[in-house]
Design a protein around this nucleic acid. Structure first.
Lengths: 223, 223
DNA sequence: CAGTGTGAAGTTGTTCACAGCA
DNA sequence: TGCTGTGAACAACTTCACACTG
């Protein structure tokens, strides 16, 4: 058996698992505030509408070890989750597109506590430039180049309209950004070695509408 | 073989497919603007960084039929996609939580064109009440009850802080909302028959950070 | 026993292989 | 030949079954 390097399952945590972990974390923080010392997987599963085994498997990726008959130590589990998710790392990021969505992200319960610190925002709209959002300055995109180089910023967030997304992505790649979180509803093209995560609200919307539709069709059928 | 009712694959379009369809749609709209009459699946796959067969399978769910050697009629395909996704339906929605994220949604390239029309927004913050966002009035949550009943609103959108989400969900369910789009990073509990779609930005963030981490580990390994 | 942890079975989604067509 | 369309092979994820523990 290949000795796993320490507790690292390096190579491949299932993406669905990664997506679920933050909701466990959030839930656990509530338990912690309530002063609950331990929690079991079945209990989590019940509250979060998941499956007990699923929870056990998901949590095992973080390396945490549970106590049989009792469950997991809440505080310990929080630490393992934060550590695993990288929420205690502070990646510094630039955000381009200081509209509502950009402002929402800047203010969203403070991503600072969740591994990403937005250092500055950029836009081309003169009305926005010079403003501050939640203490973050909005600068002209022209200044991006200089600052990205100088500060060695690693993460870029795109919250521009779709039309601008590709050229902003190019700009980011050109000035050293290695990972892009794209909220514009287009698939931007970037070189192989750049990490890109596309988050389109339309995808979620489509799922919602599809659920509505399927339910209507089921009702139709029963009739 | 059970005769499928008309062209409807009622029962189960894979969710990943549903999530991908909007990005095809967006892409096709660009092609349409460029005046392109036809497009093939391999061509779409290339631009959108997907697999040709995947595209063919995904599109087939909409019921569209392609022309061999040529591909799909762009305009026709758009119609099939919009129809399938329900983007031409106009579900009326109430949004609760008129902060940045709520404002972002109200303005987000106009969901009006994408199947959901936000009719009114609600909040408890006196500074926000009475304002308009993109032409949408912000009202006190107390008025929710009356209006939801009167207007028979079907869809509710939650963009409140996590703490408020559950009570708002309860309010929505109590006053006839049948489908909830929840952006608060908690899993709200609703009765069986209520449709709920949770969209947490933290899930996407976790995926991004995890990709960064995996890449670092791979680099470490190579060394 | 009630819970963790894990290998095995089952299910869902993706990719491959190829038939049919113009 | 280059494409659609589909059934079959494969891979990923989830659920089940059960050995193990205090």
């Amino acid at each position: 058996m290949s000795q796993k390097q320490s507790m690292n399952k390096l190579q491949g945590v299932p993406e669905p698992t990664v997506r679920r972990l933050p909701s466990y974390l959030h839930y656990l923080k509530i338990l912690k505030e309530e002063g609950r010392p331990y929690v079991s997987a079945p209990h989590i599963a019940n509250d979060i509408k998941s499956d007990p085994t699923q929870v056990v498997k998901d949590l095992s990726y973080t390396g945490v070890v549970g106590k049989t008959r009792i469950g997991y130590d809440v505080e310990e589990l929080i630490i393992y989750l934060e550590n695993f998710l990288g929420f205690n790392r502070q990646n510094e990021a630039f955000l381009v597109g200081a509209g509502n969505l950009g402002s929402a992200l800047i203010g969203y319960q403070g991503f600072q506590d969740y591994g990403v610190k937005i250092i500055a925002a950029f836009d081309t709209d003169k009305n926005k430039i010079g403003n501050q959002i939640n203490g973050i300055h909005v600068l002209h995109v022209d200044k991006f180049r200089d600052l990205a180089q100088r500060l060695h910023i690693f993460v870029g967030i795109i919250t521009t309209p779709a039309e601008a997304a590709q050229s902003i992505a190019d700009l980011m790649v050109g000035w050293g950004i290695k990972a892009i979180w794209n909220f514009a509803p287009v698939h931007v093209k970037v070189p192989e070695d750049i990490i890109i995560e596309n988050t389109s609200l339309y995808a979620s919307l489509a799922v919602l509408l599809n659920k509505i539709k399927e339910k209507e069709e089921k009702k139709e059928e029963e009739k």
